[in-house]
Design a protein around this nucleic acid. Sequence first.
DNA 1: CGAGTACTTGACCCAGATCAAGCCATGTGG
DNA 2: CCACATGGCTTGATCTGGGTCAAGTACTCG
Lengths: 252, 252
Amino acid sequence: MAASRYNKIVNISQLRKACRACSLRDLCLPVGLSTDDVQKLESIVNVRGPLERGTHLFREGDRFQAIYAVRSGALKTYSIDSEGREHVLGFHLPGELLGLDAIYPRVNRCSAVTLDSASICIMPFNRLERLAQDVPGLQHQILRLMSKDLSVSSDRATDHTAEEKLAGFLLGLSLRTGGKADLTLVMPRRDIASYLRLATETVSRLFARFQKKGLIQVRRKRVELIDIAGLEAIGGNCDIAAYGGYRQPLPN
Amino acid sequence: MAASRYNKIVNISQLRKACRACSLRDLCLPVGLSTDDVQKLESIVNVRGPLERGTHLFREGDRFQAIYAVRSGALKTYSIDSEGREHVLGFHLPGELLGLDAIYPRVNRCSAVTLDSASICIMPFNRLERLAQDVPGLQHQILRLMSKDLSVSSDRATDHTAEEKLAGFLLGLSLRTGGKADLTLVMPRRDIASYLRLATETVSRLFARFQKKGLIQVRRKRVELIDIAGLEAIGGNCDIAAYGGYRQPLPN
DNA sequence: CGAGTACTTGACCCAGATCAAGCCATGTGG
DNA sequence: CCACATGGCTTGATCTGGGTCAAGTACTCG
């Protein structure tokens, strides 16, 4: 079918090229802005941190007030269902945004907690919105970032095997941390499992299986991606890990 | 836990109240705009249709150019995976938007096809973006709608049993078609199943089971919701069907 | 009225969940 | 500096929700 040719227009290798390491100020949001506009953006940003591991940035049910950007460290967002079980909705790494899903209901639909020591930019939403009104590039960038989260989240909502999900997760994580082959998993297995809708045990077994196949080398929180092509063959069409976002937009 | 009290701030009953039937011009987008601003919006909109069932609005891989709004009829969006299998990503009813996920990659990540005869509004994205720059209410509304899609999609990505999914789907569908208790399923079982990540047979069996429990009355494409409270007890915390969106924002 | 497609129903199967030990790092107090 | 507790992780055994396969059945549309 014609469509499949385009299936991976946004594929792993293209994105890897597009993705580079970023320093503190190199957030998603300012991409494409003039230094002048970046300054305007900075004027409405409050910085908070370092926050120690386990600090909540906001909680489910809180009134929505701001969009957050991660400067350093990592966070997860999660919600608690009616049976009291936690569901991890996303991991958020330096440069990425949180809180976009709260704009509509004006109430946070999830909680956000630091996974290790982290510092954060807080952007009061009404000020950000007003600024976006003046700065076309900012409006554009917000729309793009929300759009990306939308694709990722909807890919996450589609049907994948456990292997596909974990392979996609590892590849995505690698992209988001600068395309390096060795990763440090800041989040415990339980959270990875919850995020991928798997049991902790399944994640553990998959790590073992991938290692036996020579795809990765796992040692506690350190994971080295040995055979990236092999991982892509398994989970390449799974943008699952990208929630929170690639650092850079696609090459023009 | 404290959070669970807020768990269903956005619950079915509240939303039902907030949701009313809508006529052709009563799209999601103009909500909150002055008649003047609505006129500006209308000036950039192209209307197309009626399109006969099975017509593609866009296809995976097409260059992104416009956002679409459904005026009448219904559409589904879907993508084809590397094994050639179709995954339904959403159903889109009158008043709802399509194509928002293509802003980021600038390429459509899914295809959209009419499920029956439908007419559509086409909003060229760069003109829409420029207009949103001038009309704060429009920018705000676009952000809200994207945010909502984000919540729905991320709820869809979390773990639910087959019963929860189908009950949530039916309730959501009812909300989106004006809160009536009797629904017409424009989409075939296969598409419902794909959307909910279930097998067609499972959907069929669940319909039978729900009917035996006295929750619904099914007859081919007609479904009557008999025991709404019962359905809410099963799938109430599942916003799964809402993809494409509630017609109205939350009460103030 | 016949052919195709959508839907239903039953029998069986399997990927991944759950249950149950055990393992191994890190921390804590004696 | 070592017992030993604690929580995260692994591994094995078993179970099960929902998938798959295989027949039907019933609309629908030439």
